[in-house]
Simulated assay, not measured.
Amino acid sequence: MARPEGNGADEPRHGPEGQNGAPGEGDATAEIPLSDGAADEGELRRRLEARKRHLKELYDETSTLKLAADEARVRAEASGTRVRELEEERDRLRERVSEFEEEERRRRRRREGQDRRVARLGRELERRDAEIQRLETLMEERAGEIEAYGREAKDAASRKDVALEEALRRIEGLERDLEEREAAASDLRGTIDRLRAELDLEYELRRRMAEPANRIRAGIDLFNGSEHLRSVGSISKSLGSPEVHVVLEGPDADEPAVVLTFTWQGITWQAYAANPGLAVEEPRVYQRGAGEDLSGVDREPPNARVGPGGRVFLGL
C-alpha cells in the first residue's frame, strides 16, 4: 500500500502547486526525498496528513483569491460608477464655474456701475457741500438780520409796554369813569323811574281831575287837610253847624279851583278856594272872602255838610 502512495506522490501535478509536476511554494513533501526502502506506514501517514493540510491551505487560498477577485471586480464596477459620477460632478462643476464666471462678470459690471454712481454721488456731494456752505453763509446773514430785528422788536416791545401801561392807566381811569357814569346812570334810571311813576300818577290825577265831580271831591279833601278847617270849626262852636255850598270855579279854566262857601244862620259867611291841580303853586288852599253882611252874597242851596271832626263831606 505504501508504494502506490509513493508513486502517486512522484506523478506530475497540475494546479496551484506548480507546472509540470514541480513542487509549488509551501509544498511540505518537496523537502522530504522519498526512497524505495526507507518509507514505512507511519511516514506515509505523516506525509498524507501534511499533504491534506497543504491541500486545505491551497483550497483556502483559492477561496481567498476568488473572494479577492470578486472584490476586485466589484471595486472595478464601483470604480466605473464612481468615474461616471466624477465625470457628472466635473460637468456640474464646469457649469458652476461658468455660472460663477458669469456672476463675476455681472458683479464686475455692477461694480463698474456702482463706481460710476459713486463718482456721480461724489460730484453731487461736492455740489451739496457747496450749497450747504452757501446756505450756512446765508443763515449767518439771516441770523445777523434776525438779531437786528430782535433788537428792534425788543425796543418796539419796550415802547409798546410803556404805551400799554399808559393805556392800562387810561383804561383804569375810563373804568372808574364808567363806574361813576354807571352809578349816575343807575341814579338817573331810578330818578326816571320815580319821575315816570310821578308822571303816571300825575297823568292819572289829571285824568281824574278832568271830571268835575272828581275835582270837587279832591278840592274838599285838600281843604279837610288844611289849617283852615280849624277856623271853620272855631266859628261852628259859637254859631253852630254852617250851611256849605261847594262849586267848581270857572270850568273853562286850565286849573279851576273848588270854592267852599260856609254860611252861619244868615249872620256871617266865609269862602275858601282849594285847587287840587298838580301845577298849582302854594298856597293851594286860601280864603277867598268873608263878611258879616249877606246882602251882597249870592246864596246857593247847600250841597255839602260838616260832619264828625269838622270835616266837610259832599252831599246832605
Rank of each mutant, 00 (worst) to 15 (best):
A279N: 08
T62C: 02
V83E: 08
E89A: 11
A257R: 08
P256M: 11
T137F: 11
E140G: 06
E88R: 11
L125N: 14
R170C: 12
R230C: 06
L168V: 07
D187C: 04
Q19T: 15
Q114N: 00
P256N: 09
D115R: 06
G291K: 04
I192H: 01
L93R: 08
E255L: 08
D60S: 00
K56M: 09
L164Y: 09
K66R: 03
A167C: 08
Y149F: 04
E136W: 02
L314R: 06
A257H: 01
E249A: 10
R196V: 07
S98R: 14
D60F: 03
L58S: 03
E5G: 06
P33S: 11
L168T: 07
R311W: 09
L138R: 09
W269C: 07
E112V: 08
E255I: 03
A163C: 03
E147N: 01
L205R: 11
A290N: 03
V74F: 01
E249Q: 08
E102Q: 04
G289I: 12
G315Y: 04
R305H: 12
N303C: 10
G315D: 04
A163Y: 12
G307K: 04
I171Q: 04
G310Y: 10
H245Y: 15
A72G: 05
P308W: 14
E131K: 10
A210D: 13
L135I: 12
Q133M: 10
G26T: 15
D252L: 15
E165T: 07
R120P: 00
H245E: 14
E88K: 10
D177H: 00
D129H: 12
L48N: 08
G122A: 05
E41I: 11
R106W: 02
A304P: 14
L260A: 01
L260S: 00
Y59R: 01
R92I: 05
E71P: 01
A185K: 06
A119S: 12
A130M: 13
R311M: 13
S234E: 13
L222A: 03
R82D: 06
W269N: 01
E180F: 03
E131N: 11
M139Y: 02
V232C: 02
R311F: 09
K160R: 09
D60Y: 02
R176W: 01
T137Q: 13
R105S: 12
R128L: 15
S186T: 11
R127L: 15
E31Q: 07
F313N: 05
R142F: 00
L174E: 12
R169D: 13
L48D: 07
L55P: 02
D36N: 06
E112A: 07
M1V: 15
L164N: 04
V162H: 04
P276E: 03
T268L: 04
A183M: 06
G24L: 09
L316H: 05
W264L: 01
Y286D: 01
R116H: 00
R75K: 11
L135A: 04
V244A: 00
A213N: 10
I267P: 04
R107G: 09
G6A: 15
E77F: 02
R84C: 00
E300C: 03
L34I: 15
W269A: 05
L188R: 06
L86Q: 03
A68V: 13
A76D: 11
E87N: 01
E25M: 10
P16K: 02
R215F: 15
Q287W: 03
E43G: 14
R127M: 15
